[in-house]
């Protein structure tokens, strides 16, 4: 870099420096600001001031009033952030893996059509996805109404399944009920990343030659055995990598949680927004929560990397 810099005229070098500075300022400063402000202090009735205190972090882990009282409210939000994201990303990878495998065995043309379909649904905003599932799951118009009309609800009542569903929190005394439930939240989040899982698993799976499969087939292995014993070990690393990526992506899910999760099961993204732009307006505390979310994401990614690294080593 240095030799090209000095061999060029001054205006060119200045443009280049300005460009690099611009990229760095735009892409990095926002993260640094979040980190710096998380140590700041909120002034009652005003905005906030810079500072270097760990109060916001203390509040996150044990509550603002510690040691008089302890509150684990924000730890609970963090737990739900991790829990929803982990379950949904594992579900998405587990169900999309067989699909992508079958898809990569199709003709090139058919593959392109499927890819367009998934890319279009992949880019679909979280807002639209939530809207669709909201219509499908809401009590007045969607599946509950359909169940009632077609008599499924009656049948559930007679056979006693409705009571079972009520134990699972999926029904009211009168009908099935999906809002607000963990079921609807995880379903929508799985849906949200399903096309991502397809796109991420597509390259490694499409590189597996048909010859490998045919060799195993001629030795008498059935199609499921082939996938289990030949294909699955070949793509272990991308599978785990995909789970990690989807997990990090889902940590930031906002609309789904706001619409489908009960308020006591909300996640950090909701409380971050509330603190930064919403009702509670406490920017430093919001930043501290964002930093903790980021650290949690990093820890999971590092753990995943370590697990994969060991895996590679033992092979």
């Amino acid at each position: 870099m240095a030799d090209t810099l000095s061999s060029q005229p001054l205006p060119m070098r200045l443009t280049r420096l300005a460009y690099i500075a611009g990229i760095l300022i735009l892409c990095i400063t926002p993260f640094l600001l979040v980190f710096a402000i998380s140590f700041g202090e909120k002034i009652e009735g005003a905005a906030w001031v810079w500072g270097f205190e760990l109060d916001n972090y203390k509040r996150f882990f044990v509550g603002a009033d510690y040691p008089n009282t302890t509150s684990f409210l924000y730890l609970k939000f963090l737990w739900y952030s991790l829990y929803y994201a982990m379950v949904a990303s594992i579900l998405a990878v587990a169900t999309s893996f067989p699909f992508v495998w079958l898809m990569t065995r199709l003709s090139r043309r058919a593959q392109t059509c499927w890819l367009i379909f998934f890319l279009a649904s992949l880019t679909l905003s979280e807002v639209f996805v939530v809207m669709g599932w909201d219509i499908l799951l809401s009590n007045r118009s969607g599946l509950p109404a359909l169940f009632k009309e077609t008599g499924v609800t009656e049948w559930l009542k007679v056979t006693g399944w409705l009571d079972v569903l009520r134990d699972w929190g999926l029904a009211s005394p009168r009908n099935v009920r999906f809002k607000p439930t963990e079921f609807a939240t995880i379903l929508t989040m799985t849906y949200l990343v399903w096309p991502y899982a397809v796109i991420l698993l597509y390259p490694p799976l499409s590189k597996i030659n048909n010859e490998v499969v045919e060799a195993a087939r001629t030795m008498g292995a059935g199609p499921i055995t082939v996938v289990r014993t030949v294909v699955l070990p070949m793509v272990r690393t991308p599978l785990i990598g995909t789970v990690m990526l989807l997990f990090v992506f889902l940590l930031g899910a906002y609309v789904t949680i706001a619409v489908f999760a009960a308020p006591d099961k909300h996640t950090l993204s909701i409380s971050v927004y509330e603190a930064v732009r919403g009702a509670t307006l406490n920017a430093p505390f919001g930043s501290a929560q964002a930093v903790i979310l980021l650290i949690a994401a990093t820890i999971v990614l590092v753990l995943g990397r370590v697990a994969l690294g060991n895996d590679e080593g033992t092979k």
């Binding site: 690099i20 990229i23 760095l24 892409c27 990095i28 400063t29 926002p30 993260f31 640094l32 600001l33 979040v34 402000i37 990090v248 992506f249 940590l251 930031g252 906002y254 993204s269 971050v272 927004y273 930064v276 732009r277 920017a283 919001g286 930043s287 964002a290 979310l293 980021l294 994401a297």
Partner: peptide, 24 residues
């Protein structure tokens, strides 16, 4: 390094970048 840093906003949960941009 430059490419890695430029991809950071896309790779991390967007809510964190969003918060940072509010301050920025």
């Amino acid at each position: 390094l430059l490419a890695g840093l430029a991809s950071m906003p896309f790779a991390l949960p967007p809510i964190i970048f969003g918060v940072g941009l509010v301050f920025f």
